[in-house]
Simulated assay, not measured.
Amino acid sequence: MAKRLPLILLLWLGTDLYFYQAVRPFVNSSAWLWAYWLIDLLLMSGIVAVIFVRRGSRTQQTLIAWLMGLMLLAWVPRLFSFPFLLVEDITRLFRGFPPRVLWVSELTLGTAAVLFLLVLFGITRGRHFYRVRRETIYFPDLPEAFDGFSITQITDVHSGSFTNGAGVQKGLDLVNAQQSEVILFTGDLVNNHASEMDRWIPAFAGLTAPMGKFSVLGNHDYGDYIQWASHDAKDANLTRLKQVHAEIGFRLLLDEAITLQKDGQSITLLGVENWGKGGFHKYGDLKRATATVPDDAFKILMSHDPSHWEAVTLDHHQHIHLTLSGHTHGMQFGIELFGFKWSPIKYVYKQWAGLYRNNGRFLYVNRGFGFLGLKGRIGMWPEVAVITLKRK
């Protein structure tokens, strides 16, 4: 982050200087203008402070969470409304730069006000604004007994970020309301410590599904992002987290496969440990998980990181019909309207939210149940996914 700091500060200052052109015609008081720049000074000071706080400490996490919310609240309205100023300046360039037209400044500020309210909703109420997303996927070789089989998937709980019991319970009630045959959880139950789940064990134990609840680990579950007193302490934390999965009634799959039976027919459910491209650990072993699985079995894979799909799963010698992932959170920030979706995370992950298909193999990337870093969600709402399998 330290290397990127000058660029961040330069981009921030440039955006604010430009947006200031819209504000100035409406502000005659020097006190208000000083307040405008004081907000930026405080936020930039906070960015610098994060660098010098102990990595992974609770203080750093709290500071980052507040900064992310305030930065988005201050910057997003300016960033997405100043194109109006830019268009006007292009026309002014050919007109000898006359004074700005007042209605353009009014339009810019009006747009910024709307965006300000949207961001404010996201960081105050968006964290528990759960949405149910449904997909029906057709397979020619789906066993007949599983035609219409329903899966509810949740992912990225990040229980260490939760504070509102009623808000979390609203999401869990929504999961149960789907009445799916199975509930699948695809990783990141905690931020770092297994103890983060202690308060939430009774609530998550209340999730029910007639054919069972199953889970895998995500990158945050291993405790790789904080400093531990010893390797034994880190190992003990992971052991405890595995126990927590059992206490909330989830069968944790660690590079293994189980068979789901229905009316004399079966499908195979696979679960691998976290495997991710880039700087993420590659704990998972798909070959090990499928070692005893027949080639002609219908297979559903739980793999936390969607990069595993293109890097490993698509080239696997066995046909993996459906992969369920999470990890991206949709960056907890984006736009989804009328079938259009966008988030900055798309420039990092090719598959980042929703359903993808490649040569008869499907990947569904869940936007996540919880939140991390930013204490909210803006436009990329927390998700309960319901996937129905149909036979062609």
Rank of each mutant, 00 (worst) to 15 (best):
K170L: 08
S45V: 09
V101G: 08
A194S: 15
A297P: 01
E256M: 02
E196P: 02
L118V: 15
M197R: 03
A236E: 13
T292E: 15
F129R: 12
V312C: 06
E196H: 02
S266I: 05
A2D: 10
D156L: 01
G148N: 10
F94I: 14
L184G: 03
Q178M: 05
S81Q: 05
I151P: 00
D255T: 10
L120R: 07
R240N: 07
D295Y: 06
N237S: 09
A74Y: 05
A31Y: 10
Y18I: 12
Y347S: 13
I8S: 11
V182Y: 02
L260P: 00
H304D: 06
F162Q: 04
R125F: 09
H158V: 02
G339V: 08
I258Q: 12
L389E: 04
F280E: 12
V119T: 14
L115G: 05
V272E: 03
L324R: 01
P382L: 06
V157L: 13
W342H: 12
T59S: 11
L41Y: 09
M302H: 02
H245F: 08
I267W: 00
A112P: 01
P6N: 11
D141H: 13
T108S: 08
V272I: 15
G96M: 02
L43R: 08
Q153F: 00
L86G: 12
L314Q: 13
A145L: 02
L270A: 09
P344T: 10
D221E: 05
I387A: 09
N28D: 12
G96S: 10
T155R: 01
V216L: 06
I51Q: 14
T208W: 05
Y349S: 02
A289S: 10
L270S: 06
A289I: 06
G56C: 01
W342I: 09
N274M: 00
P143H: 09
Y349Q: 02
Q153K: 07
V157C: 11
I267A: 04
I51W: 05
E135Q: 15
L363N: 03
H193I: 06
R288E: 14
V87N: 08
V53N: 07
H304N: 10
F80M: 11
L184K: 04
T62V: 11
L107T: 14
L184N: 04
I183D: 01
N28Q: 10
G167E: 05
A113I: 13
G360H: 06
A257C: 06
H231P: 01
L314M: 12
E106K: 12
M1W: 05
P294A: 15
Q243N: 12
L5F: 06
D305S: 05
P98W: 03
H329K: 04
D89C: 04
V244M: 04
Y138P: 00
F338A: 15
F185Y: 05
I201W: 03
L389G: 04
P83W: 07
L13C: 11
F139K: 07
F371Y: 15
V244K: 00
K277I: 07
F204K: 02
N274H: 02
P99D: 13
K350E: 14
L172D: 08
H158S: 00
F82Q: 15
P83C: 14
V114F: 11
H319C: 05
K3S: 11
R134I: 08
L270G: 04
P6F: 03
F371L: 03
